[in-house]
Design a protein around this nucleic acid. Structure first.
Length: 626
DNA sequence: GGGGGAAGGACCA
DNA sequence: TTCCTGGTCCTTCCCCC
């Protein structure tokens, strides 16, 4: 940022996401680009906010320098030993048996627009608007124009730049054409976005007796013939290497400025310092990257975790106007949720102030909601608590979805479901009181064990709630990436294919082990039905007939929960009667799986498994304000 | 100490 | 004059059990 130490060239230290190099930007006059971006940005609120963030990172770097300076000659042998041990362990997990491709369509949106409008060919062009551009073709990149750059800056860099508005229907159509080709090589390919995918071509290579390079070249040719679009392909034994993306701007700064690390090799060489300065989680990640380790498995289908909508507008502090905008966003979100049959119970309000400060405020509700009115009601309450504020963006996010879709249900019912693990246990409980009677019966069965042991409920017309088990993974793509600022072994490029040579995988323990554990009780897909019933009534309208607890009729949710509790008790008794029965067995398995998952989270030992490493993760726990 | 919710942030396309 | 949108995952902090 333009500090006094920058002398008469303050722009040299102004680094934004769009001052980094990108394919097609070779030969760009970087200093000129930086100067223009700096000149057009300085003095703006955005610029001021960037300075604030930069100062925060600088402080972190200084703290780490201080910590580094405190390390003594006696400390280092210990940390070197720890690093060596970690490297050996990681190295032992290397798997070279798979062949992965990472395919990235070249300047996808721009290429599609040019395909449909050949007059754009050869002209510098950007898809987007004057406020923000999505992507730029290679002609525009020669001027320093690139994705995620404000249009007005891009226009300044390249006055002849042609702006084309986005058309996602078009991009989706062409994306599907590319995916048809991908499926021929890997039916379970992983789509990372409209223009990016990972393909496991191990079988394809083996069956056809072709090398990975031959298959990759053939695939690129087929893509071009069937879509008219070009793509870049990375070939490697794991997904991390096939892509070699980047550690972000922040991480790169920290590694460079604190330890002088610029390459994979240096990550390994400075392993002792990494162990000394960073958390266990971060160190493992860095060393894995240094060794070129990445995921080699194909994750199960991912389930959506949240859905959101946000809008940027001219900064305003006018409350009625903000509430109206919030209502519009609530409507958009509600519509999106209805399209996907989603009901959520955690609502998060995102605010960006006029000075670009971002705040989030979340509220977890007692029920699942979907309607515009409900979303708007809760969101307005949260917003009013924050006002007065001058805002330039508001967003709403819904998460904590109900397991089943398309029918509202109280979250408490899920609590009940969690008591029951599997089997054809048919349990019914009747809650009787002077004012209301409720009945339910649950029929449970184990689904194909392919996806997390989570309980799903499906409502049927007969009011039976079916609870089934399915297996779901939280696996994500190997998205930890190394920025172009770091020099690594190899990378895919716009011109063709590079084979990354050696790579490895970590043990995909979670999915395989879960499947293995589940298969251990194959053949026990159903268990005996219970004939027991819990008869619960409210004596005098407020005393539980089973335990005597007093609860007034107005405590509807609490009463429901109480009934659930007694039902759970009944099921537990049933379990004890069956002794080593399936309920116990399955519950044990579920417990073991949960423990395993918890242990994985706690150890955080494998951040290389496609996890992002946030800035705070680079500082040792409990050492705040170093 | 562990679990879970909230808040903030990094990173991705 | 003008610096996005939508999503995931991770951390710390705090409260409760």
């Amino acid at each position: 940022m333009g500090t006094t130490s920058d002398g008469d060239r303050p722009w040299q230290s102004y680094h934004t996401a769009y001052t980094n190099a990108k394919a097609g930007m070779e030969g760009v006059d970087k200093e000129k680009v930086q100067r223009i971006i700096y000149e057009m940005s300085k003095g703006s609120k955005y610029f001021e906010n960037e300075k604030r963030k930069e100062a925060y990172i600088r402080q972190k770097v200084e703290n780490l320098h201080t910590l580094c300076a405190k390390l003594t000659d006696k400390d280092m042998p210990h940390f070197q030993e720890v690093a060596n041990k970690k490297i050996l362990e990681l190295e032992a997990s290397r798997d070279l048996s798979k062949i992965w491709l990472h395919i990235d369509m070249d300047a996808f949106y721009a290429a599609v627009e040019t395909l449909e409008n050949p007059s754009l060919k050869g002209k510098p062009m950007a898809v987007g608007s004057m406020s923000m551009i999505c992507t730029a073709n290679y002609e525009a990149r020669k001027f320093g124009v690139r994705a995620a750059m404000p249009g007005f800056i891009a226009h300044k860099l390249c006055p002849d730049l042609v702006f084309v508005p986005t058309n996602f229907e078009k991009y989706t159509y062409y994306s599907e054409l590319t995916r048809k080709v991908f499926r021929r090589y890997d039916p379970d390919f992983i789509a990372a976005s409209l223009d990016e995918a990972y393909l496991n071509i191990t079988e394809s290579c083996n069956e056809r007796g072709l090398s990975s390079e031959e298959v990759a070249a053939e695939l690129r040719n087929n893509i071009y013939e069937e879509t008219g679009l070009t793509c870049s392909v990375g070939v490697a034994p794991n997904r991390l290497l096939a892509k070699i993306g980047g550690i972000g701007k922040v991480t790169e700064t920290i590694l460079k400025d604190v330890l002088g690390i610029n390459t994979c090799e240096e990550l390994l060489q400075k392993g002792a310092f990494l162990c000394a300065l960073f958390s266990h989680c971060s160190t493992d990640f860095f060393l894995s990257v240094g060794l070129g380790l990445g995921r080699t498995d194909t994750p199960e289908q991912k389930l959506r975790k949240s859905i959101s909508s946000e809008r940027t507008f001219s900064a305003t502090g006018d409350e009625p106007m903000l509430l109206q905008k919030l209502a519009d966003i609530a409507e958009t979100l509600s519509n999106d949720m209805q399209k996907e049959c989603l009901w959520g119970r955690t609502l998060t309000l995102k605010l960006k102030t006029a000075s670009f400060e971002v705040r989030t405020r979340a509220v977890s509700l007692q029920k699942f909601i979907q309607s515009k009115e409900e979303i708007q009601t809760y969101a307005s309450k949260v917003l009013k608590a924050e006002l007065p504020l001058s805002l330039r963006l508001m967003g709403l996010r819904m998460s904590q979805f109900r397991d089943d879709k398309c029918s509202p249900r109280d979250p408490m019912q899920k609590t009940l479901a969690s008591f029951v693990i599997s089997g054809n246990v048919t349990a019914s409980a009747t809650c009787v009181n002077k004012s209301s009677i409720s009945e339910f019966s649950d029929e449970h069965q184990i689904c194909d064990a392919q996806t997390d042991l989570s309980v799903h409920r499906e409502s049927s017309a007969s009011n039976d709630n079916k609870i089934s088990l399915s297996y779901e993974t939280n696996d994500v793509l190997a998205s930890n990436q190394l920025s172009c600022g770091l020099k690594f072994a190899s990378t895919s490029n716009a011109d063709g294919i590079e084979n990354m040579g050696n790579g490895c995988s970590e043990k995909c323990d979670s999915v395989e082990t879960k499947n293995e554990m589940i298969s251990n009780f194959s053949g026990h897909k159903t268990v005996a039905a219970s004939s027991q019933k819990v008869e619960l009534s409210w004596v005098d309208g407020y005393i539980c007939s089973v335990c005597g607890i007093e609860m007034p009729p107005s405590f509807i949710e609490e009463r429901q929960e109480h009934s659930d509790y007694h039902l759970a008790e009944m099921l537990q008794e049933e379990e004890s009667v069956y002794g080593t029965g399936h309920l116990t067995q399955e519950r044990s398995v579920r417990k073991a799986l949960q423990a395993k998952e918890n242990a994985r989270k706690k150890l955080k030992s494998s951040p290389n498994k496609g996890r992002h490493i946030p800035i705070d993760a680079f500082f040792i726990k409990g050492k705040k304000n170093l």
